[in-house]
Amino acid sequence: MQSFDFNYQQFAEVFARLGKKFRLFGPKRVPGRGRFSDTDLITYADLQNPEDLETAEKSYLSPKSIVFPPDETTFYFTADQFTEPELSDNRETIVFLRPCDINGIERLDRIFLENGKVKDPYYQRRREKLHFFMIECRESFENCFCVAMNANRTDNFATAIRFAPEKVSVMIQNESFLEAFAEVGKKSDFVPEFVKKDSKAVNLPDVEDMPADIFSDSLWDEYDSRCIACGRCNTSCVTCSCFSTVDIFYPDSRNCGERRRVWDGCHLDGFTDMAGGHSFRKDKGDRMRFKTFHKIYDFRKRFSEDMCVGCGRCDDVCPEYISFSSCINKLSDRLSGGKKDEE
């Protein structure tokens, strides 16, 4: 393992060099495209210049779109022929992302590559192309609780990068990137650090099995009226992996169309609708309970680790100010017998 320091101009050189061979993807500030007028959208997108890389603020949306796009065509139909689309960009991809998000993509791996023993080929072909360039994260952002979720650390990265005010430090784990950096950089002893303390204390429930009565606990009732089922907690979440399959038709064609999969989410209406009209979890409180348990309880039963990585984006984006981390704490309090009468 070797480390190098760069000034920003040198880093730009390396960036440009990498850009010739790799697709570069990372957090990007898009001016004026935020939810409110005259606010910016920080999202994950293709990067053309090092200045595109937003390293100071947390992104509104997660990097999951690089492996799990919001809308992906799985087949083109021509009459009764099914054709799988080629990837529009076949290059290996460098993703700039934080440790929580690297852990988040590993959670997606559990579902798409491990669950059910069949690998999802659409996910796999995108996933195989990724090289993680870890953006060092030493301080929690607002709403972050990666330490509690044990997702503050990772050693799954090709390089780790510290963006300091005057210089950029890079530690290289994947030797294939050594050359690109070594030619420009100055040797250093940089070693990435990780967040040690969450901005907010989150206590995970300490139970093997959820008691049946917690499913109907009044704890969930407040979310019936608070949650508006907008689905932002799902769409912003790096680990939410649910999708729906939809077929579309080309309006001017008799027999052409596509099968696509699009993001779905357990907070959205229609998520459990069955043909014939029956559905489950009509109440938003039930959806909150379902999501909470998946993120911090039942995923663990299946994969021996929690799904939630504590990135806190669900809290960042909720228009109704529902705090998921507070919900976890309320749940833990209930399970430990305390604060039963708290609002």
Binding site: F243, D264, T272, H294, K301
Partner: peptide, 24 residues
């Protein structure tokens, strides 16, 4: 059990109840 399913192979998440995937 009968549940909404989009994939049938444990990916889409619609049929999950607790840690159980109805499709698997």
């Amino acid at each position: 059990f009968e549940r909404l399913m989009s994939c049938g192979i444990g990916k889409c998440g619609h049929c999950k109840i607790d840690y159980t995937y109805v499709c698997l």
